[in-house]
Computed example of a mutant assay.
Amino acid sequence: MTFEPPSDLDLATIAEQLGRQPRAIRAVAARCPSGHPAVIQTNPRLEDGTPFPTLYYLTCSRLAAAISTVETSGVMREMTDRLAVDPDLAAHYLRAHESYLDERDALGPLGTQVTAGGMPGRVKCLHALVAHSLAKGAGVNPFGDEALELLSPHWPVGVCAV
């Protein structure tokens, strides 16, 4: 999958979405229906060399708010519990972790197996998992895909509030 370099307008929009200047941005990895950046791809290290293991970072404030609402429902514990009883799901989630790690390390190895969202042993942050699913497409991250289904009544809806 090829991502677009951010335009000056993208960078200004992302800064407005985040309430700060974006760090270590490589590309826009996914856009919301109104065309604003929704997910950025970042470098494995910040400009000062600090490791930054989150390869895909959610920027859309409307989507972030909707995900936060879903997270309060207890769904992450249920997802994590399913990993212990569903070997196919656990294997799929492990593959998501491994592909994330391989992709990030191809940009610059960090020497760590930490990826994002709790992969591969638990579900810790739906924001990171949804960002991964939006960037890579359906079928790569099972819990990111499930979270997007849970979000469907809330996002995408009309034009984003940047």
Rank of each mutant, 00 (worst) to 15 (best):
M1A: 14
T2Q: 09
T2S: 09
F3V: 06
P6N: 07
P6W: 09
D8E: 15
D10M: 10
T13D: 13
T13F: 04
T13K: 02
A15D: 08
E16P: 00
Q17W: 00
Q17A: 13
A24S: 14
A24D: 06
I25V: 15
R26Y: 09
R31A: 05
R31Q: 08
P33A: 14
S34E: 02
G35H: 13
G35S: 10
P37N: 06
P37D: 05
A38N: 08
A38G: 09
I40A: 02
I40Y: 03
N43V: 03
L46F: 01
D48C: 11
D48Y: 13
T50G: 09
P51M: 11
P51E: 10
P51A: 10
F52D: 10
P53W: 04
T54V: 13
T54Y: 14
L55C: 02
Y56G: 03
Y56V: 01
L58E: 04
T59F: 11
C60Y: 01
C60P: 12
R62V: 15
L63I: 04
A64M: 13
A64W: 02
A64L: 10
S68P: 00
S68V: 05
T69R: 14
V70P: 05
S73K: 04
V75G: 00
V75E: 05
V75M: 02
R77P: 03
M79K: 00
M79F: 15
T80V: 09
T80A: 09
V85C: 09
P87S: 12
D88P: 00
D88L: 12
A90Q: 07
A91M: 07
Y93K: 03
Y93C: 03
L94T: 08
R95A: 15
R95W: 02
A96G: 07
A96Y: 01
A96R: 02
H97W: 15
H97K: 08
H97V: 12
E98G: 02
S99Q: 15
S99E: 15
L101A: 12
L101M: 10
L101W: 13
E103M: 14
R104C: 12
L110D: 04
Q113G: 11
V114F: 04
T115P: 04
T115R: 05
A116P: 02
G117R: 06
G118D: 03
M119R: 07
P120G: 08
G121C: 01
R122V: 10
R122M: 13
R122W: 03
K124A: 12
L126R: 08
H127G: 05
A128I: 01
L129R: 10
A131Y: 04
A131K: 02
H132S: 02
L134R: 07
L134C: 11
A135D: 07
G137T: 05
G137Q: 12
A138S: 15
V140S: 12
P142I: 05
F143W: 13
F143T: 02
D145K: 00
A147S: 11
A147D: 09
L150I: 05
W155F: 15
W155M: 04
P156Y: 12
G158R: 01
C160A: 04
A161R: 12
